[in-house]
């Protein structure tokens, strides 16, 4: 009953919306070109396909995120496809129970702590370029420079990223993704809680229209996804191990929290949906809050009124 019914953009025609999203700053038109440049090394057909879909997805997300108004954020996460989502959630849980969780437990308890730390640093280091690109698009070039400096230091002094030397040198790690970038620019009328419809992805788990779009963009701009394709590195030797390690590492780190949430909820699906939405909103709000510090507190005041 409490699914938020999103107000359709009734007041704007399609043309008006297109106009609203047309880039106005001089460099904005070059985003597309920049993206193309970044992936210029990929075979043409792939480039064109990836670029088209990434740009389309970004536009779709902009529309999805841009439609709600008068949103107090007190409503439940918007979940119009709850039935298929719950189905995918059940599939994920089964796969998790049979394969991923047992492996993650073995990894957590059997692999030395220092080796786990090394793996985590390695994976984190591979993710730094994506963070840096997102920081540029979030309008924080100095932060992006620090991230790239971290990447260079850790890739060399840190032995290909196994050791996080940069943190010891005082360069703190940040993690940004395109979902946050979209959420940040979605505009003040869009609550960060509103990321479009909720979506449970195969294997990845909780997501929504905004963050799933972000995931695709991050994939398309990741040099460490593009290079292996360009250099014809066998999937089996690079992408598969990286993916497998990410899954096991992530699962072992979230074990305690997920177990706790599952044990202490009467509807695990709904509890996780809520926790995911809130946490993502918090990250996006922190980006916006540089200019707007009252957002979250005002939202809580509204919640008290709604009740």
């Amino acid at each position: 009953m409490h699914f938020k019914v999103q107000a359709p953009c009734a007041t704007l025609t399609v043309e008006q919306q297109r106009e609203a999203f047309r880039p106005r700053v001089p460099w904005a038109g070059e985003l597309d070109a920049g993206l193309a440049l970044m992936i210029a090394s990929v075979p043409k057909s792939v480039t064109a396909g990836v670029r088209r879909s990434a740009v389309m997805a970004a536009l779709i997300a902009a529309f999805l995120g841009g439609c709600a108004s008068g949103d107090t954020g007190a409503a439940e996460p918007w979940d119009p496809i709850e039935t298929p989502n719950r189905f995918m959630f059940a599939v994920n849980r089964t796969v998790d129970m049979i394969a991923i969780r047992p492996l993650a437990v073995m990894y957590r308890d059997g692999v030395p702590e220092r080796a786990q730390k090394g793996v985590r640093n390695l994976l984190d280091n591979l993710g730094e370029p994506v963070t840096a690109i997102n920081e540029v698009f979030q309008g924080d070039p100095s932060r992006a420079a620090t991230t790239m400096a971290r990447f260079l230091v850790n890739s060399t002094l840190g032995l290909a990223g196994l050791f996080d030397v940069a943190t010891m040198l005082g360069m703190k790690r940040t993690k940004e993704d395109a979902g946050q970038t979209i959420g940040m620019w979605a505009g003040k009328g869009v609550e960060p809680e509103n990321g479009g419809f909720y979506l449970v992805l195969p294997l990845v788990g909780p997501s929504n229209a905004r963050d799933a779009t972000g995931l695709m963009i991050d994939y398309a701009i990741d040099p460490f996804q593009i290079l292996p394709i360009a250099l014809n590195v066998d999937w089996f030797y690079y992408s598969a191990p990286r993916y497998a390690l990410s899954v096991i590492d992530y699962r072992s780190r979230t074990m305690f929290a997920l177990d706790d949430l599952e044990k202490n909820s009467v509807d695990y699906y709904a509890a996780l949906r809520s926790a995911y939405t809130q946490n993502r909103a918090e990250l996006i709000r922190a980006k916006r809050e540089k200019t707007d510090t009252k957002g979250e507190l005002e939202r809580r005041d509204n919640l008290a009124l709604v009740k």
Partner: peptide, 11 residues
């Protein structure tokens, strides 16, 4: 695809 859903330990 990287498990980038691995954002932070939101949990």
């Amino acid at each position: 695809m990287p498990l980038s859903a691995c954002r932070r330990d939101f949990l």
